[in-house]
Computed example of a mutant assay.
Amino acid sequence: MSGKVEQLKDEGTRRQVVTAGAIAGLISRFVVAPLDVVKIRLQLQIHSLSDPLSIASAQGGPTYKGTLNTFKRIVREEGITGLWKGNVPAEAMYLCYGGVQFLSYRTASSFLANIPPPFTPPDAAVSFLAGATAGTFATTATYPLDLLRTRFAAQGAERVYTSLAASVHDIYASEGPRGFFRGLGAGVSQIVPYMGLFFLSYETLKPAFAPLPLPFGSTDAAAGITASVFSKTAVFPLDTVRKRLQVQGPTRAKYIHKNIPVYEGVYRTIKQIVRREGPRGLYRGLTVSLIKAAPTSAVTMWTYERVMTLLVSMDEQVKVEE
C-alpha cells in the first residue's frame, strides 16, 4: 500500500483520533451554524406558483428569496440569535459525529489496508469504503441530534419547543422512539456515497495539493473544500429529502413554513417533490449548502490535522520525560 492511504488512517492512537475528530467537529459547527439555518429554511420552502399549498401562491412569492435575503429576514424577524437556532443539539451532534466518524474511518481503513494479498483492495477502494463506513456509523449514532437540530432551525418567531428537554419529551410522547429517526433512510442513503466520495477525493487531492505554496499549511483545507463541494453536489437531493422527512409528525404545520406537505418514504418524497416543484425542488438551498460545505470541511480537516499533530507531539514529549 502506498503512503498516501496511511495519512489519516494510521496516525495517532484511538484516543487521539476521537479527541481530534470531536474538537474539529465542535469548532466547525459553531463557525457554519448560520449557514446551516439558512440552508434548512430554504430546503423546507415550497416554491411552485401553481401549487395551492405553496406560500408563493398564497402570498405572491416565497417566504425567502435567496441566501442573502434569508439571512436578512431571519435577523430582522428573529434577531441575530435566530441564526444559531438548534445550535445546542447541533454542537452535541458534531462533537459526537466528529469522534465517531474519524474513529470509524481509521478502524475501517486499517482493517481494509491489512487484508493480505492478493485480496488487498486498491487505495481508492480503501478510501471510499472506509469513508462510507465512517459516515454510516456516525450518522446513525447521532441521528436524533440531527433531527432535533433541524426542528429547532425550522422554528420561526413562534416556538414549537420551549427547550431541548421539552423537545425530547414531546417527540417521545407523541411520536415514540421511532420519531427520533424520521428520515434516517435518506440520511444513510446520502451519507454513504457522500463520505465515500469525500474521503476518496480528499486522500487523492491532499498529496496533489501538498506542493502548492498556500499559507498557514492550508493545503489540507483546500483539499477538504474541493472534496466537499464535489461530494455535496452529487448527493444533495437526498439531503433535501432528509430535511423534509425530519419535520414530519404532529408539529409539521407549526414551523416557519406552515405548508410543508406530508411525505412518507425516500422514494415517494422524491417523486412528490419533483411532481410538485420540478427537479429544481430537490436542489433548494444548494448554493448556501456549497458555501457552507467549504468552510465546514476546511475548518474540520485543518483543525483535525493540527490537533492530531499537537496530541501526538504532547504524548511523545510525555514519553521522553518519563
Rank of each mutant, 00 (worst) to 15 (best):
P117Q: 12
E305L: 04
P207E: 03
Q248I: 12
F198H: 08
G25P: 00
G66M: 06
D315V: 01
Y64V: 02
K243S: 05
L148H: 00
Q155F: 04
W84Q: 03
L212K: 06
T13S: 15
N69T: 07
R151V: 01
E322A: 12
L184K: 04
I191S: 09
A154I: 11
T287A: 13
P62E: 01
I273N: 00
V31M: 10
E316S: 13
T309Y: 05
Y97G: 00
T204Y: 11
Q43R: 02
L129M: 15
Y194G: 01
N69P: 00
P89C: 01
P62Q: 09
S231I: 10
V307C: 09
M314T: 03
E175P: 03
T136V: 14
V38S: 05
Q45W: 03
V312L: 10
I260R: 07
V299N: 08
S163E: 03
D170W: 01
Q317C: 06
M1I: 08
E6T: 07
F199L: 08
N69R: 03
E203S: 07
I225V: 11
R151N: 09
R76K: 14
G285Q: 03
K65G: 09
G179H: 00
P250H: 05
V32K: 04
R73A: 07
I260M: 12
I171L: 00
L310K: 12
Q246N: 13
D36W: 09
V247G: 05
P193L: 09
E321V: 12
A234Q: 11
I191W: 02
V262Q: 13
G249C: 13
T67A: 04
A138G: 10
G25V: 02
A132F: 11
Q155P: 14
R159F: 10
G3V: 12
I40K: 11
